[in-house]
Nucleic acid binder design. Structure first.
Lengths: 190, 190
DNA sequence: GCATGAAGTCAACACCTGTTGACTGCTGGG
DNA sequence: CCCAGCAGTCAACAGGTGTTGACTTCATGC
């Protein structure tokens, strides 16, 4: 957009298609995010989308990589993980954030869809669970990390799909405290 | 099963169809569980399945009711909810259990599929969250119920899809304690 | 000027979806 | 005997899917 250097950095059609695909796969179940709707949003022909990536599954893999590459690193290896990371990330959109959409949807859409499940499970393990364990520290760090992550994941899903009455109308600070207090309780006594 | 009374208790075709549908909807995403595959498994024609329930969506609602009615009461309104209900249900297959399949899959397949989402969200609210809130009691019961449920939901999803290392090789009793301790921590300090 | 090859379109393919209406086979009642 | 009505089938519908191959458009190098 603002590139005025020697390189024009023009956004390629391929990138436009990937952006459209990200939006669709975030918003819709795997089967409902059709190549045709993606192509329409990107302003190209279906056939070209297909040729660009070889198959719908390959395009989905591309989307997964693109979304989560933008997010790395999710958990920095610092000690004060509770306040600085979990809470603040929860405040502005969640554990993962992508402009204008909620990556928790991508996770939900992936789980239960065999083509996508393996990819995302591996990603969660290596990019989220392991670093979180390292951050939590202490003995039984693994177990506590799993419990903390379970709570964060469940709360995330509830807030997105079912709704959390106790969070309605709260400020980001209050939401942060809501999360942090429970995370602390799990770490200390859970 | 053991019915030897005057009533033969013959399993109707409708029941066979519902059983087939339960299996399919548990195993597959909403769109992949087609009326045709359900009909084939039940040994009848597609058209009859459709006529029996009026629409695929209606059949899905029927499946939801059937699955979760078998589970009722999920949260009895007793005080000792932690040990007697949450834990024991977690031990033998989870918060919800159906022979041979994991209802958490039904939830995952439902979330993100608009036709199914509304049905299951309402069901979770009225049949699980509200009774849990009543059981937890005290002031801030709503907030604590939501937190407890978030943890249970997240842990359930992790155990099913991502895996919980700290639960590998544990006995049901240990699993129960694992859950109960965290639930208690959330209730008391979360 | 002309061939080349990439970027992109077009129309069609084979297949699968939920849904519909007309149909058969059968069983019980008058 | 007949006939109403239920259980279930059959064939087809309209529409949507990923995928394919032939086609156009256009800039570039010779």
């Amino acid at each position: 957009m603002t590139g005025k250097a020697a390189e024009p950095a023009a956004v390629t059609t391929r990138e436009r298609v990937i952006d459209a695909a990200i939006g669709q796969f975030l918003r819709l179940p795997y089967d409902k995010a059709t190549l045709r709707s993606i192509a329409r949003e990107a302003g190209v022909d279906v056939a070209y989308v297909h040729r660009l990536f070889g198959s719908k599954q390959a395009l989905f893999g591309e989307v997964l990589s693109a979304v989560f590459r933008r997010e790395a690193p999710v958990w920095p290896p610092e000690a004060d993980i509770l306040e600085s990371v979990l809470v603040s990330r929860w405040q502005n959109g969640g554990m993962l954030s992508v402009e204008g959409a909620d990556p928790i949807d991508l996770l939900i859409h992936s789980l239960g869809t065999p083509e996508a499940e393996a990819v995302i499970v591996e990603f969660i393990r290596s990019h989220m669970l392991d670093p979180l364990e390292a951050s939590v520290g202490g003995d039984d760090a693994g177990a506590r990390a799993e419990k903390v992550f379970a709570f964060l994941l469940g709360a995330r899903i509830m807030r997105r799909f079912i709704g959390l009455k106790s969070l309605e109308g709260r400020t980001p600070q209050e939401v942060g405290e809501w999360v942090a207090r429970t995370v602390r309780a799990i770490c200390e006594k859970g």
